[in-house]
């Protein structure tokens, strides 16, 4: 389990990294925490000729809350911010607690000290926690290339197994996670066979309740398709409902309907489909309780 030979380059900043990608072409991969890429290289499942290390890029190592123009204040996570830093940050707990919960389920603590949030999103493992939570809460990906930056909405970013709409010459410089208004609640549930194994399935959900009625909802499933799956059918059922048990059950059923998940040694496709429904139900129940509690308390939880 030794990697094939590769050349290591360190980028001091986002623009340098983009310039290196531009120069080195498709043989180069971005290295941030390395917690997914390096095992793949050691297993010889990936063999990039060049690694461009951004872990010490000063302009990518940040985590803060942006002052949004329309009053919303998204969480802004730079590509060199580690999962552990994001997980433990008060900013995250305020704007995107679902992200903190997702990270807490992703790998062991030592892994999270090296792994990055942006790296997990860019890696686009359909079974991973962070992409599912990111997609559920919504936001945008800021892609850097030699020519400058572009903004990709979260729902457009993932396009297949370990695949995104990112161009070869682009790297993800940061992600913004949208803030949800007061009266919101989240739920994040995953099932794995052991405490530390890859998830069988994941459900990430947020709902917002005004005057006892759901007026915004988001349901995302992980581990049951080629990307984290956004489930608008489930959201449609929740909208206007009281987020009670009946509505949640119907939404969970809708979330799982039509899924054709893959099978592996952790569980068959049929089992994953069942778990998608169970986990959606549980995640929505958590979200409803938190949203309700938040509403009663007159503020966001």
């Amino acid at each position: 389990m030794k990697s094939p030979p590769f050349e290591y380059k360190r980028a001091e900043g986002a623009e340098e990294a983009a310039a290196l990608l531009n120069e080195l072409g498709s043989d180069a991969r971005i290295l941030a925490g390395g917690q997914s890429l390096l095992p793949l290289m050691n297993l010889r499942l990936a063999s990039p000729a060049f690694l461009v290390d951004i872990s010490r890029a000063g302009d990518l190592k940040f985590l803060h809350i942006d002052n949004g123009s329309s009053g919303a204040s998204p969480l802004h996570v730079g590509a060199a911010a580690t999962q552990r830093d994001v997980e433990m940050s008060a900013h995250t707990l305020r704007v995107a607690p679902i992200l903190a919960e997702a990270i807490a389920n992703a790998g062991q603590v030592p892994v999270r000290h090296r792994g990055t949030v942006v790296g997990s999103i860019a890696h686009a493992d359909p079974s991973a926690e962070v992409p599912a939570a990111f997609l559920a809460q919504g936001g945008s990906v800021i892609a850097q290339s030699l020519g400058g930056r572009r903004v990709i909405p979260s729902e457009d970013f993932f396009d297949g197994v370990f695949s995104t709409v990112l161009e070869e010459v682009e790297l993800v410089a940061s992600v913004r996670v949208d803030e949800w208004p007061e009266g919101s609640g989240h739920g994040f549930r995953e099932l794995s066979v052991t405490a530390e194994s890859w998830p069988v399935a994941i459900a990430a959900a947020l709902i917002h309740i005004t005057d006892g009625e759901v007026d915004r909802a988001s349901v995302v499933l992980g581990g049951v398709g080629s990307t984290p799956l956004w489930r608008p059918e489930a959201e449609a059922i929740l909208m206007g409902s009281d987020a009670g048990a009946e509505a949640i059950e119907a939404a969970a059923e809708a979330a799982a309907a039509g899924l054709e998940p893959p099978s592996d040694t952790f569980g068959s496709g049929a089992y994953r489909k069942k778990m998608a429904r169970v986990l959606t139900r549980r995640a929505l129940a958590d979200a409803a309780e938190r949203a309700g509690a938040a509403e009663r308390a007159g503020g966001k939880q």
Binding site: V193, T194, S197, D264
Partner: peptide, 15 residues
């Protein structure tokens, strides 16, 4: 189908 510890599951203290 279980060539590494990603697939061959071991109990940890958490289990």
């Amino acid at each position: 189908k279980t060539p590494s510890f990603a697939e061959y599951l071991l109990p940890s203290a958490l289990d």
